[in-house]
């Protein structure tokens, strides 16, 4: 789909961790992002959406999410447990974000 150039990484997460088939996974991600299913593979639309939501994109600018920080937001946005995010929270003792529990 194009990975972080589009929404490929997000759709893949739903397939990988929830076993969702492609149509259901795309619909789920589109609804959470507030875009159409067709937009998910559009590099122009998704670059803007990803910048606005600060969930990481290819053309990085200073002070935007780049790695684990982007995944914190993705976990919250998709309402999805991400293993390394939970591990990071555990290691640094983060308990504050209710939506991450």
């Amino acid at each position: 789909m194009g990975g972080i150039r589009t929404a490929g990484d997000l759709v893949a997460r739903l397939q990988l961790n929830r076993g969702m088939r492609i149509d259901a996974a795309k619909k789920y991600v589109a609804e959470k992002l507030g875009v159409s299913v067709l937009d998910l593979s559009d590099t122009v639309v998704m670059s803007e959406v990803r910048e606005e939501l600060d969930i990481g994109r290819v053309n990085e600018t200073p002070a935007v999410a780049k790695g684990i920080d982007a995944k914190f937001r993705i976990a919250e946005l998709l309402d999805l447990a991400i293993n390394c995010v939970n591990m990071f929270k555990e290691r640094v003792g983060i308990r504050a974000y209710q939506s991450f529990d």
């Binding site: 990975g3 893949a12 969930i55 790695g67 684990i68």
Partner: peptide, 10 residues
């Protein structure tokens, strides 16, 4: 790797 990347990793 999980600290620096965004896509899911196997």
């Amino acid at each position: 790797a999980v600290l620096q990347t965004i896509a899911p990793i196997f």
